[in-house]
Design a binder for these strands. Structure first.
Lengths: 136, 136
DNA sequence: CTTGTTGCAAATTCTTTGCATGACA
DNA sequence: TGTCATGCAAAGAATTTGCAACAAG
């Protein structure tokens, strides 16, 4: 179960899911991803999308953020590079941010507090340049 | 609406909600808070609890974190002091953490990126000393 | 009396699960 | 042929809204 060598068949749906996600450079919800794939002609069930995303999350291949009402947004993570993003509240676009400082800080908190297995979630939101009202 | 002087009647339920929340020194869900109040003899509707918490959130009187499945947890914020916490995944207890470093970092990201109105969410979770297995 | 508040029930939204069919090795 | 994956439909969970009765000023 925790074994990465667990057999996993490369199916049409799984490939399509990976491709769709890789082509999407912003965070997207399972529902939206399914809708987009369907619109593009890929026949795939919503359940399969959810399952695929869950697997990718378990494999640490995607970054995940919590949207408002329990909705989760996923974003493909190329390599092991980024984990934290700055997201535009208006258009939804996201850009990775350098979070070294925060990583360090989290590590320090962990050792100072006596807590074990400390994990952190950091979400930055704002309004990107393109979405800001022209009004001064 | 954004006016703090907006009339708001001090009702029995609202006072009870505030008191229950102030007496609870950890994060708690709307459902649990309602259950606890009911168990203590306070007659209040679940809807009213949700509405009260929503108002408190809007007034910045509580800190909010996202639990797993779209569940939101609330914690009374005395004064304007703390905003970030380290939460035990095992027992749910929380302790405020010094987040000055993160505040600064977030501010720098904001100015560097060209984003406006940048807000940040930071959640730290771990296993507190009391919940760690005696093993080792 | 007038207006905001309450609370039950129904509706919404996102996500997960049961189970029979279908595909890959 | 034997598994694992798929996907429909139903279940589950948390939160929000409609609306009539109620309480405060």
């Amino acid at each position: 179960m925790s074994d990465l060598t667990t057999q996993q068949r490369p199916t049409r749906q799984r490939s399509a899911l990976l491709e769709a996600l890789a082509n999407c450079h912003d965070f997207i919800s399972a529902q939206d991803l399914h809708a987009r794939m369907t619109a593009e002609g890929t026949r795939i069930g919503l359940t399969t999308v959810y399952r695929g995303l869950r697997d990718l999350e378990a494999a640490d291949a995607v970054d995940v953020i919590q949207a408002s009402a329990g909705e989760r947004l996923y974003r493909w993570r190329p390599g092991d590079s980024h984990r934290h993003y700055l997201i535009c509240r208006a258009c939804g676009s996201s850009r990775p941010v350098d979070s070294e400082v925060v990583e360090e800080w989290a590590g320090r908190i962990a050792s100072d507090s006596g807590f074990a297995a400390v994990e952190h979630t950091v979400e930055l939101t704002g309004v990107c340049a393109g979405c800001q009202p022209a009004t001064e």
